[in-house]
Write a protein that binds this DNA or RNA. Structure first.
Lengths: 124, 124
DNA sequence: CCAATAGTGTGACGAACATCGAACTAGCGG
DNA sequence: CCGCTAGTTCGATGTTCGTCACACTATTGG
């Protein structure tokens, strides 16, 4: 019935940025999103499906505006959900939604052999 | 012992174009290869792992030099094997090698739901 | 041997995109 | 209230890349 001030405050601070509904996620968008190595590495780092502070993401060696661009691309493709938490923000892979829509895709892309081959590509 | 003329002729005509060894296939290359919609559709059309004449590929509405470029990209990424057969050529998805290296990846990318979402992207 | 056919390779062009810096916005702590 | 910090947005820039036309190679059939 009544919305408490605390709940209002929570809605205000824990905002979620716009992302496609689960049914609107399309494979071409996902594939394009991880066709960039930096974004692929981010997806791998989020494989556990938990929320992560973006400060803790693997060192990508890009400016913050570039990182913001990548996170937006991942979010708009349907890969991730981004939540504000005060001044910083958290991000998670939408594992269950993705797996329901394209079974096996996330697993394949975040598998150990996949990660190993990315490390190789980085090294050269 | 002896190589018959027929066998020689076969070797000469059934040339295979260069592609990476199974162990050298890297996920970033695969993902980048299917980040183009035309190439993604080709991969889907080859999902059965059999050799296909490239004339029978789905209508891509591109010039032959462009198609050749796409087929080269797919081949060099490790997705496909291309064999010359006289004046024309055949192509197949390297399903077993890909599945051994990145389990589930090909299945996920060629699944019915994946194909459906590509059709949707095409329609708009 | 010659014409037709199938595909490859190259160079050019335009669009898409990753990147950066700078300006802006919002929360947090004195 | 004021600076500091964390991210977003915008415009510019350079690069990557999909596309095409054209030239070239190789195979087949008369």
């Amino acid at each position: 019935m009544f919305v408490t001030l605390l709940e209002v405050a929570r809605v205000m601070t824990d905002r979620s940025l716009p992302m496609p509904a689960a049914d609107d996620i399309r494979l071409p968008d996902l594939v394009k999103a991880v066709s960039d190595q930096n974004r692929l590495r981010i997806v791998m780092a989020l494989a556990d499906g938990e929320f992560h502070y973006i400060v803790e993401l693997p060192g990508l060696d890009v400016q913050k505006s570039t990182l913001s661009h990548h996170l937006r691309t991942l979010r708009e493709s349907g890969f991730t959900e981004t939540q504000f938490d005060g001044r910083t923000c958290q991000i998670r892979l939408r594992v269950s939604e993705l797996d329901a829509r394209f079974p096996g895709f996330v697993d394949a892309v975040t598998s150990p052999s996949a990660q190993a081959s990315v490390e190789l590509s980085l090294a050269e």
